[in-house]
């Protein structure tokens, strides 16, 4: 075994991951793609009837799908941006030396550690207009005059949902960036300080570029997770009010389990997946190339 050349050995090491992933993810995905070309719903008696491009044509005229896609893009863009900024800030704080750092790091992870479904329910309750804590605190501080229904109007609901998601997933970003900060060699930091450079300069010129790989990964996965968000929205608003917070995965879920429209749901997923794949390739591969160049 020690005689295998590098690339052969490498493929061998890749094997466990590939097998697991093919079985659990790629196979179901392939079946899904296959299903998207069939009609399988209550009309067909849940039999699979070949329908060619029918589902995709339907998709092209589905305003509800486009609205959900737009909602998802908006939600993802705003959430991830805020999380990146906030996460970086938190990572910097957590990276410094101060007493009880361990305990504070553990506490910073709490939002991420709580089960989504439970926290979502807690949020509906915190956001309640009559007995919600948020309104109570704001009222006492004199910031508002009367209770606001945070989830009650389309515009407020969008931001309320974004905030709930940012709260939950910022630790994810900050912990990855923290790991990145900690991987920066100690003597590098020493060198910057010895050279007398100001903290901000050092940060911009040295730290940030070195953090780039971890930032890219964090950004990628946060974007993907945010795009597929389901639990939070389902519990908080069910996609409302007036469909304002309906994201693609909520719409897919409804098609699957409420309408029993399996062929169409498969097409929705394939379409979304392709768009995401395109975006991911276009953004990630150039970064990959840059990585390779930087050595």
């Amino acid at each position: 075994m020690g005689k295998l050349p590098d690339h052969g050995f490498g493929l061998l090491l890749l094997l466990p991951a590939l097998v697991l992933v093919s079985l659990m993810v790629l196979y179901p995905l392939a079946r899904n793609v296959h299903l998207s070309f069939y009609e399988k719903d209550l009309h067909s008696g849940l039999e699979s009837r070949f329908a060619g491009w029918y589902n995709y044509q339907r998709l092209g005229h589905d305003s509800r799908f486009f609205t959900s896609f737009f909602n998802t893009v908006f939600f993802t863009g705003v959430s991830v941006s805020i999380e990146l900024l906030l996460g970086l800030g938190f990572a910097l704080v957590l990276n410094a030396s101060f007493p009880a750092r361990g305990a504070i790091r553990a506490m910073a992870l709490i939002p991420w550690a709580l089960p989504t479904a439970v926290m979502a329910m807690a949020w509906t309750w915190i956001y309640n207009d009559v007995y919600g804590v948020l309104n109570d605190v704001l009222l006492r501080l004199g910031i508002i005059d009367e209770g606001v229904a945070w989830l009650g109007t389309p515009s407020a609901a969008r931001w309320a949902v974004i905030f709930a998601d940012v709260w939950k997933t910022t630790p994810f970003v900050s912990i990855i960036l923290l790991a990145g900060l900690q991987s920066i060699p100690a003597d590098l930091c020493e060198a910057i300080r010895i050279d007398g450079a100001k903290a901000v300069q050092g940060f911009r010129l040295v730290t940030l570029p070195l953090l780039l790989p971890s930032m890219v990964v964090a950004l990628l996965f946060r974007t993907v997770h945010a795009f597929g968000i389901f639990d939070l929205i389902y519990v908080l608003t069910g996609g409302g009010p007036g469909g304002a917070t309906e994201t693609v995965s909520v719409y897919v879920y409804y098609n699957l389990f409420r309408y029993l429209d399996f062929g169409y749901a498969a097409a929705l997923v394939v379409a979304t997946f392709l768009v995401l794949l395109l975006v991911a390739i276009l953004t990630y591969l150039p970064m990959l190339k840059r990585e390779v160049e930087l050595g």
Partner: peptide, 9 residues
């Protein structure tokens, strides 16, 4: 694989 929404699995 990362892009696949778990719900369809």
């Amino acid at each position: 694989v990362a892009l696949v929404p778990p719900i369809i699995l």
